[in-house]
Nucleic acid binder design. Structure first.
Lengths: 212, 212
DNA sequence: CATTGCAGACCGAACATTCTGTTTTTAAAA
DNA sequence: TTTTAAAAACAGAATGTTCGGTCTGCAATG
């Protein structure tokens, strides 16, 4: 327990904690890379271990089971991805980080269509059938979803009369993004994906109205 | 080879062929069920065999490898799903099977949000990282995509000036559907999915104009 | 009777997990 | 300050299971 140390000096982080955190970060980064490159089915502990360049002991010490590993990696991804995009939490205030009409394109390019975004989709798809993994993640997923939606709702209103229309439109957009990540395999021309994205953004932007 | 038999009497199908086809159908149905219920990662040959109630020998006799099994199952799903919905191929002519403004909702309810639809998403997601599986399926996927799109293009035009706008809108819709299948895990209230679907259909229907 | 359809045992590889050691860190005792 | 003992971080071998695929034997079909 490090609580004895932190009780005397709350700000102090011990060498242990620093090393442990660095190790965890390293392992989780390997998980993201493996999920992105090989998919959930082929992301084995052996592969993660090899990719991270750590021993089997180190892996199982920090993450007793594979699900715990995937779960923590996912939560780290979520919290890392949410913060910089939509709001500046460091200053305590919520303000858009990008021009309003570029919200969709920007989200796609910098959040969804990334190694983390693709890894996240692998986890989400796995959650559909892996009940245990879902149980571990469910609360955090829904909390993240609510937080993400309310951030949008503070910045935009929808074209529909419904109070929560902006949130609805945002959920629809994120859903489209998720589908778009798996659409690559259908089309021969990658540029077609960009056309789909642009057309979709054009349509949705007509319904997402900046509050002011 | 059965060509010797069919050369003499093309309509005749031997007992063998009937049995073989029945066995294949049975196995593929089990694959669909397993993909839907357990996901691609947990769809093992053992599980399929158990689910279908056939021996290991029968399985490997008809499908030498797992990829061949998944590939054929996928192609059967595709061809079974395309036909009844958008056109009546038995009469040779192409006509819509549902009212125009119900195309999206109907596709969602009767094609995408089914055991086959969910199984298909599992395969598509796996294709992203499983290059071998993708290579087997790529041609058929793109051919199916083109056929599906052109069927839509014959029935609708898009609100945009682009010649292929209807196809683009249809691709966008199918992409949204795919994402929606994995969205269940985000929301606590299942009715929210229906709201998303209705709102999306409302928006897209304004851009999909029936030809006439 | 030759071929195909099917049954089930079997194989090595890979899997997730558990385990026994070794090293490093840390806080309190000397 | 130095010593010390416990705890944590890590290493890597061992375990039993399951994986996809192969192989041999037998029955049904043509």
């Amino acid at each position: 327990m490090s609580e004895a140390a932190t009780r005397e000096n709350p700000a102090k982080v011990s060498k242990k904690e620093i090393k442990a955190e660095a190790m965890k970060r390293r392992i989780c980064a390997a998980v993201v890379a493996c999920l992105d490159e090989h998919g959930y089915a082929e992301t084995s502990i052996n592969r993660i271990q090899e990719r991270a360049g750590v021993s089997r002991g180190a892996l199982t010490h920090h993450f007793p089971t594979k699900q715990a590993l995937v779960a923590e990696t996912t939560m780290r991804m979520l919290h890392a991805a949410t913060r910089p995009m939509y709001a500046d939490k460091s200053t305590g205030e919520t303000k858009p980080a990008v021009p309003a009409d570029q919200l969709l394109n920007n989200s796609w390019n910098h959040i969804v269509n990334t190694a983390e975004g693709r890894a996240f989709v692998e986890v989400i798809v796995a959650c559909r059938t892996d009940r245990e993994l879902y149980n571990v993640l469910a609360d955090d997923l829904q909390e993240w979803d609510a937080e993400s939606s309310s951030t949008i709702a503070a910045l935009y209103r929808g074209s529909d009369a419904a109070e929560d229309d902006a949130e609805l439109l945002w959920s629809i957009s994120r859903t489209f993004f998720r589908g778009l990540l798996t659409h690559e395999r259908f089309v021969s021309d990658p540029a077609y994906l960009a056309r789909m994205m642009d057309r979709f953004a054009g349509i949705m932007n007509a319904h997402l109205i900046v509050r002011g």
